[in-house]
Computed example of a mutant assay.
Amino acid sequence: MPEPAYSASSANDVVTAGTGADDEPLPEHRPEQLTVDTRADGDRLVVEVRGELCLDVDHELKELLSRALEDSVSGLDLDLSGVDFCDCSGLNALLRVRRQALSDGKTITVRAAGRMVERLLELTGTQPLFTSDAEQDGGPDLGAEVVQLRRAMRTRPTIDLARGVLMATFGLSPDQAWEVLVHSSQNTNTKLHRLAEHLVAAVQGEPPPEAVQREVAAAVARVGSGP
């Protein structure tokens, strides 16, 4: 059993923001507790992360992983199978810690991950940065990571705003809105940030492409019929 070497509770309050004409608040969402457990595996540390990786806990996640990285000899192997939700802010935290690891001559890999994390890594093109193959070529990967980190930070506000549009329009939870974005992005072969731009523009009266409209409607219907 892993020892709970590091843990943190997420923020108690979530600030809501109005998005409609009547400035009605978005549905409140309280992230699950963030827990980070570690165990030694040779000269590396296996880090099991559970909870939700979102804007409310990205700073805590980075701090906890940074401390674990300092205690490791050659780096960290992440087990993210217990992560129920991950957005671009959670990904930013992982990328920042990986950048720290490379500067210290260490590596970070994702040993296991749930469907949502896998899809986020795939959609953003960051999956290769957390594989064992990436350990052999740290120099070029560092450059690719910096580019990806800048892109993720630049597109995150639009993606988060698009989630708010879906939540306010269809009464979805943050998790459901994220599922709609991911499914619609995959099924229309549209970059996640580009899809978000279409949805935000729709609020200003600029309809998205017909294929995007159909897929978003289908995705909303799917998540709405789930548990």
Rank of each mutant, 00 (worst) to 15 (best):
A21N: 12
M1V: 14
L142V: 00
R99S: 09
D13M: 06
S7E: 14
D84V: 06
V203H: 12
V223R: 04
S225I: 01
R194S: 13
V147E: 14
A21Y: 04
L181Q: 09
D56W: 12
G105E: 05
Q186W: 08
P227R: 03
L149K: 11
M167G: 07
E70L: 10
G226L: 12
G143D: 10
S7L: 15
R214P: 01
A112R: 15
G138C: 01
E24A: 11
N189S: 15
T126M: 14
L195W: 11
P157T: 06
P174R: 02
T19R: 07
A11Q: 13
G75A: 05
V57Q: 13
P128A: 09
L61H: 11
G171C: 08
A11K: 13
S74D: 14
R163A: 10
L94G: 06
F85D: 06
D133T: 01
R163E: 13
G82S: 15
G18S: 06
Q136W: 09
D87Y: 08
T35K: 15
L80Y: 00
K106G: 04
E215R: 07
S74N: 12
R67H: 01
P140S: 02
L95K: 06
P157Q: 05
K106T: 05
T155I: 10
G164P: 00
T126I: 15
E135I: 04
L26F: 04
L199E: 07
Y6L: 10
R222M: 13
T131E: 00
L61M: 06
Q100F: 02
G105S: 01
A196D: 09
T158A: 15
W178D: 14
S103Y: 10
P207R: 05
A211D: 11
L149V: 03
S66K: 02
F85A: 10
Q100H: 07
L195T: 07
V212G: 05
A113K: 07
R194H: 13
D84T: 08
A144E: 11
K62E: 15
L94H: 06
D104F: 07
N92C: 11
P157L: 11
D87C: 03
L102D: 08
R50P: 01
L181T: 12
D71G: 02
V182S: 05
Q148A: 04
V15P: 04
E145I: 07
L149D: 09
P157C: 08
G90H: 02
A101V: 04
Q148T: 02
S184V: 03
L149M: 07
